[in-house]
């Protein structure tokens, strides 16, 4: 049989109806604890020890009422499966692409679906350690957990090497080309308007024959080494001494290097040898520093 199609067409329609869902006593306690305490709670079966998150009032295997056996879970867990949503639909919670993943909280037996953010799509993997990030604004739903993000296994603040991590011989350096602008800005910062640094005609009459940088300018390049590299973030400099050995000309590329030469166990400080070399590997300055490496912090991601 063939269908005569000349009269066939389509009509757009919609199914739009209001509804509500009762979470019930058990579901409400779970949501309220998310909302009020930012805590994730589950229910544990006393018989088989299975921990349900989100909670269920009945263990479906043992068929036991478990609704009074609450357990509190950490905000951390492991991704047991994930998918990357790449198509767009109006009802989606986020603009694609985004990651939906099954997250099994530490201590729970039931993974639940949520969103993972803060990891490159190509880096997403099963087994990723994640932690819950709570929503700023509550909706009294599971979205009071806004998303999960990769759990930083290091302390929350990035920190340099602690005393215990440092070894003699460890070194780090910082390199930068000194421009005319650097010198003029440094003159402004320090107030040292010595014509030796700023007046080319005057400088021609000096033994150097041209303008040179302030000695403290290349010397300051040790600050990024100590403060950001070795020992790194969190370091407190206690003493820096420098001997100037050669001039630094405009356009020179200076490398400041620090090396651990001594650990002082009593104070838990370290002494470092400092060298400053130019592009010709000529030492323009040398010295030493005494620093207090960063102290380990308790706090994790805040």
């Amino acid at each position: 049989m063939t269908t005569e199609t000349k009269d066939c067409f389509t009509i757009d329609g919609k199914l739009a109806l209001p509804y509500q869902y009762f979470a019930g006593s058990t579901g409400s306690r779970f949501i309220i604890s998310l909302r009020e305490e930012k805590k994730i709670k589950g229910l544990k079966c006393k018989k088989c020890n299975k921990v349900f998150v989100p909670p269920r009032s009945t263990c479906e295997v043992c068929f036991e009422d478990i609704s009074d056996n609450w357990v509190e879970l950490p905000n951390t867990g492991t991704v047991t499966g994930f998918t990357i949503v790449r198509y767009e639909e109006p009802h989606q919670p986020l603009k694609p692409p985004y990651i939906t993943a099954l997250v099994k909280l530490d201590g729970a037996d039931t993974p639940f679906a949520h969103i993972v953010k803060g990891v490159a799509l190509s880096q997403m993997k099963t087994g990723l350690r994640v932690e819950a990030v709570f929503a700023k604004k509550t909706t009294a739903t599971i979205m009071d957990i806004d998303h999960f993000r990769p759990k930083a296994e290091k302390p929350g603040f990035e920190q340099g090497y602690t005393y215990d991590q440092l070894e003699e011989g460890m070194s780090a350096s910082f390199t930068k080309t000194i421009s005319e602008t650097d010198v003029y800005l440094f003159a402004g910062i320090s107030g040292d308007f010595n014509p030796m640094h700023l007046n080319e005609e005057f400088a021609k009459a000096t033994p150097f024959g041209t303008r040179i940088a302030h000695g403290a300018l290349p010397q300051s390049f040790i600050a990024p080494v100590l403060g950001m590299k070795l020992p790194g973030l969190g370091t407190i400099a206690l003493e820096v001494t420098t001997r100037f050995k050669a001039p630094t000309y405009f356009g020179d590329t200076i490398t400041a290097t620090g090396e651990i030469i001594e650990k002082l166990p009593e104070k838990r400080w370290v002494r470092m040898a400092l060298t400053f070399t130019n592009q010709h590997n000529k030492r323009v300055a040398e010295g030493s520093a005494l620093v207090m490496p960063p102290v380990p912090m308790k706090s994790s991601i805040t």
């Binding site: 269908t3 005569e4 199609t5 000349k6 009269d7 066939c8 067409f9 389509t10 009509i11 757009d12 329609g13 919609k14 199914l15 739009a16 109806l17 209001p18 509804y19 509500q20 869902y21 009762f22 979470a23 019930g24 006593s25 579901g27 409400s28 949501i31 309220i32 009294a140 739903t141």
Partner: peptide, 22 residues
Amino acid sequence: ELIVLKQVLSIPQTFATGPVMG
């Protein structure tokens, strides 16, 4: 306190008339 989630289900649809209704 008991949590009640209120939503509106809204699904766009397209209906084919077929030859007779069409």
